[in-house]
């Protein structure tokens, strides 16, 4: 199967994988690593101290007296816990939405009883006036569905504009640059780590959705889908088991790039002081303190080197795969 075969890795990719593995390992083991200092605890006796100075601050301290090494390790943890789930969730959401939009388009029809069921249960769930009415409508829809199953009568069906809805939502989110959108939305809500994760996911799904939709439009017309239809496989099963695995191909190559984009976005947000609360360690926030102390080269150098190598590794993974696959 195509998904399980991997192209041979070049040496640059092996290096990249090695580096990313190291970062992930350090991030995962951060709480148990034998670090001399915790990230949030300032050492007021050693402010803005150069590396290898007194006090076991191997990579120096920032102007608030926080240990650079532990901020780096815990910053990697913050970055990993935000970008990895956000990229995966955005990919899944985009795959589901784009896959449905590409496979069914605007023309798929849903029988009237299902519509009744949906409208009725939404009515009840939102507690619109007289919620009991919603339950009655939903029950009517359910009854009609069962009845049509039993008697096999043709019922009127109305089209569901899946494609229009998904593409409209994607266009809406794409109208302004992602950074500006996240800044505007982060202002409106009290931001914690889960909220920021949701925000990043919600603003990043349109790109994978477009990719999967484009691929699905191609896959839909291939002979094996036709064969599955002719064999009488239900439409939902064809979509999930046969079409979607093929349509997910482009996501395999763009996942590292998507993680790289999210890493840049996350560190930019914390550099600007928007998003995560100030006591959460992050590379961007450490870089922001470099402006207060222009002489402290170590505050700028170490996090930016980490960030740059990580970005280059992710890019190498994404780029090489695209050429090979």
């Amino acid at each position: 199967m195509a998904i399980l075969t991997f192209a041979p890795l070049s040496w640059a990719q092996k290096l990249a994988l090695l580096w990313l593995g190291l970062v992930v390992l350090a991030a995962g083991l951060a709480p148990v690593l034998p670090l001399p200092y915790r990230p949030g605890v300032p050492d007021l006796a050693h402010l803005a101290q150069a590396p290898f100075g007194p006090g076991r601050h191997w990579l120096g301290t920032d102007p608030q007296g926080r240990d650079v090494l532990s901020v780096l390790v815990f910053g990697a943890r913050t970055a990993m816990l935000l970008t990895l789930p956000a990229a995966v969730m955005a990919g899944l959401l985009g795959a589901a939405a784009g896959g449905a939009a590409g496979y069914w388009g605007n023309t798929t029809r849903l029988a009237a009883p299902w519509w009744l069921l949906g409208v009725g249960s939404t009515w009840w769930a939102l507690r619109l006036p007289v919620p009991l009415l919603g339950l009655v409508v939903a029950a009517l829809g359910l009854g009609l569905t069962l009845a049509t199953r039993l008697y096999r009568r043709p019922v009127p069906a109305w089209p569901v504009p899946i494609n229009a809805v998904v593409m409209g939502a994607a266009t809406t989110l794409d109208t302004i640059p992602r950074l500006v959108l996240v800044v505007a939305l982060a202002a409106s809500t009290a931001v914690s780590q889960p909220v920021l994760l949701a925000l990043l996911t919600l603003t990043s799904w349109p790109y994978p959705a477009r990719l999967v939709r484009a691929q699905m439009l191609r896959v839909r017309a291939l002979p094996f889908i036709e064969a599955a239809r002719a064999a009488g496989v239900p439409a939902g099963q064809i979509w999930l088991r046969h079409a979607l695995p093929q349509a997910l191909q482009p996501l395999r190559t763009t996942l590292p790039l998507s993680i790289a984009g999210l890493l840049a976005l996350e560190s930019t947000l914390s550099f600007l002081g928007i998003g995560l609360p100030p006591d959460v360690a992050s590379w961007g926030r450490l870089l922001a303190t470099a402006r207060e102390e222009p002489t402290a080269w170590w505050i700028f150098l170490f996090p930016s080197i980490l960030l740059i190598i990580s970005m280059l590794s992710l890019n190498a993974l994404g780029r090489q795969r695209r050429i090979l696959g």
Binding site: A260, A264, S267, T268, F271, L287, L307, M311, L314, N315
Partner: peptide, 24 residues
Amino acid sequence: LTAVHALPLFVVALALLLVFANPE
């Protein structure tokens, strides 16, 4: 070009600031 493309804007801006507008 590929390497520069991978850099986040704020790292580039900060590097320029710390090199060319720094009394040190």
